[in-house]
Simulated scan of single mutants.
Amino acid sequence: MKTPIFISSAPHILPNWKQAFPHAVFYCGLPRQFDDFDDSLIFVDYMNLRSDDKRQWLDACLATGRKVFVLSPTPNLHEAIDVIKDGAIGYGHTLSAATLMQEMVLVVSHGGLWIGNKLLKRVMAALNQKGPSSQQKQNKGGVERFGGILSQREVAVGKLVATGATNAEISSALDIKERTVKSHITSLFDKLEVRNRVELSLLLNNIEISRPNSDIPSKLPAL
């Protein structure tokens, strides 16, 4: 992946962005043309944008077919779900430390999704508080719909992953070693064709995601 591109309403590139990517390209405002973007990752900063502008900026960037990562000065779980469902491959804080931003790019450049562990746990907790959707009630929802290809232990681990539980918490809840938890989660990645914990958690909560530039389906069919 080439040098990232930042699009923001800020008058100049922010220090943490510059520190993370010294040669990053910066645009103040939405560019009129995207011809020179090649396959670069696009960071879209939501700072000072109204809701309609956020939608316009994200749609314009996604329309290029390039990978888009949304930054927000006030990350929240509803926006996180919305941008990932719409096709963004990441969602993070505008003022994230340079080292964290480099980690973000590393993850998404290898085909993963990024939300961040703290926000992911809040997203999963909120989804579980809402209870099963009408579709989940009609059909088997969550990890149970994959029971035909998962072992009973993988189903048990998957249910806890879907709540945002950490490996240590899963280990304690199921009375198994943490390395065994990691092994089961790796198996879940392989069997459900997801690349990381974020995608697994979203899938097990029946959240459909767009996967631009990917040969892996956004959501596997119910089994």
Rank of each mutant, 00 (worst) to 15 (best):
residue 98 A to K: 07
residue 81 I to K: 07
residue 92 G to P: 08
residue 111 G to C: 07
residue 94 T to N: 08
residue 74 T to C: 08
residue 143 V to G: 02
residue 106 L to F: 12
residue 142 G to K: 06
residue 77 L to R: 12
residue 136 Q to P: 03
residue 132 P to F: 01
residue 106 L to S: 14
residue 104 M to W: 15
residue 87 G to P: 09
residue 88 A to V: 09
residue 81 I to C: 08
residue 138 Q to T: 11
residue 79 E to F: 04
residue 117 N to L: 11
residue 74 T to S: 12
residue 111 G to N: 04
residue 124 M to D: 02
residue 110 H to R: 15
residue 73 P to H: 08
residue 140 K to N: 11
residue 79 E to K: 08
residue 83 V to A: 06
residue 106 L to M: 12
residue 128 N to H: 14
residue 141 G to A: 09
residue 75 P to I: 06
residue 128 N to I: 00
residue 145 R to F: 03
residue 145 R to V: 09
residue 135 Q to Y: 10
residue 118 K to W: 09
residue 109 S to H: 07
residue 110 H to G: 09
residue 129 Q to D: 13
residue 116 G to A: 09
residue 134 S to R: 13
residue 90 G to Q: 03
residue 147 G to P: 01
residue 101 M to E: 01
residue 93 H to V: 11
residue 145 R to N: 04
residue 80 A to I: 01
residue 105 V to Y: 03
residue 80 A to L: 05
residue 83 V to W: 02
residue 104 M to D: 14
residue 147 G to E: 03
residue 92 G to D: 07
residue 98 A to V: 04
residue 131 G to L: 05
residue 108 V to K: 00
residue 96 S to M: 13
residue 141 G to W: 01
residue 102 Q to D: 06
residue 79 E to P: 04
residue 137 K to M: 13
residue 108 V to I: 15
residue 127 L to F: 02
residue 99 T to S: 15
residue 96 S to R: 08
residue 144 E to T: 08
residue 130 K to D: 12
residue 127 L to N: 00
residue 77 L to C: 05
residue 116 G to T: 05
residue 130 K to C: 11
residue 102 Q to G: 06
residue 112 G to H: 05
residue 110 H to S: 14
residue 76 N to R: 05
residue 98 A to Y: 03
residue 147 G to D: 02
residue 79 E to D: 15
residue 107 V to S: 03
residue 135 Q to C: 07
residue 106 L to T: 14
residue 88 A to W: 06
residue 114 W to K: 06
residue 97 A to D: 14
residue 78 H to R: 13
residue 116 G to W: 03
residue 95 L to C: 10
residue 73 P to N: 09
residue 144 E to L: 12
residue 120 L to A: 09
residue 112 G to S: 08
residue 100 L to S: 14
residue 91 Y to G: 03
residue 89 I to N: 06
residue 116 G to F: 05
residue 84 I to V: 15
residue 139 N to I: 08
residue 125 A to T: 10
residue 87 G to M: 10
residue 85 K to R: 15
residue 128 N to A: 06
residue 86 D to Q: 14
residue 143 V to K: 00
residue 139 N to F: 14
residue 105 V to K: 13
residue 76 N to Q: 10
residue 115 I to P: 00
residue 93 H to I: 11
residue 80 A to C: 15
residue 76 N to G: 10
residue 117 N to F: 08
residue 99 T to C: 11
residue 91 Y to C: 04
residue 112 G to C: 11
residue 113 L to S: 06
residue 146 F to N: 00
residue 94 T to D: 09
residue 143 V to I: 14
residue 127 L to E: 01
residue 139 N to V: 09
residue 140 K to R: 13
residue 115 I to H: 02
residue 113 L to K: 07
residue 94 T to E: 14
residue 99 T to Q: 13
residue 82 D to Y: 11
residue 81 I to L: 15
residue 123 V to R: 00
residue 85 K to Y: 06
residue 96 S to K: 09
residue 94 T to A: 12
residue 119 L to E: 05
residue 127 L to R: 02
